[in-house]
Amino acid sequence: MTHEAPASEHDDHDSPYEGLFGGDSDHWAFGTDFDDPLAGIEATIPDGADPRALAQYCLMLGDDALVLSHRLSQWCGRAPELELDIALANIALDLLGQARLLLARAASADPSVVPPLPGASEAVPSPVPAEDALAFFRDDRAYRNAWLAEAPNGDFGQTVARILLFATARLALLERLRASRDAVLAAVAAKGVRELAYHRDFAARWFVTLAQGTEESRRRVTAGLAEVWRHHDELFRAHPVERELAGAGVAVDPADVAGEADAALATVLAASDLPWPEVPQAGQLGGRSGRDGAHTEALSSLLAEMQSVARAHPLGRW
């Protein structure tokens, strides 16, 4: 084989198994170690903030991200085009990353929010990190996400409308949360703002494309918007915990960002040549909704699936 290209040009591709037994951990997308994701950030509770309220607030923001991330991950392998499959997975991964930081913060602010694991004891300590105990061993009544996050996906039009509504509200919120007196929340918000800006942009572009595309796409995205719009007001209704922490300069009162979020939505609707939706809002359960732990039927079945493997092996290592 005298004409073969020099082997040295290819050596680094010829040994895919090299390093399998350790070494270059920086080649991993997520690292081989599972270090504290909040390492290096000042984790003390700000003066005047109730740690229990702070934990509840982190669960609200974290559960929104976790549950919507789960819904978007259900699109994996099913999107209308490979590029969209990749984009939806990106958004799901961003939200999952935010959820992990927020759940870990909730656990560090108030360890009592972390549910005890079946089978674990002092003799047999649980190998499950706090973020996983919160995600996989908490019942639906302990979840604090808004109903918009847990609603079923519907078609691509409804999914785009949901991301638009969610990202618009969360972006407005996180922009202000960057100034939180809690260093962890401020850091999560600073990272999240960049991500949410992309999510909102993706959703807005596709919303306009579908609204101005074909008759069918306009009909579908309009119907999808009406479906998710039933959960619009809940996003901006403050829970007492949010109001209390907003007063302490730690949280943002969602009612304060409603005007800003609605203005952004109005821009997208105008570009789509669609009116402001006049849709009855989903009612509360005896005055309670997602932030209080009251949910729609969709959440318990979502969690049943999500938690099934973890709960079957409470002492498992993954």
Partner: peptide
């Protein structure tokens, strides 16, 4: 994906 047993996985 929807049943992965830890958030990292």
């Amino acid at each position: 994906i929807t049943r992965a047993p830890s958030l990292r996985r």
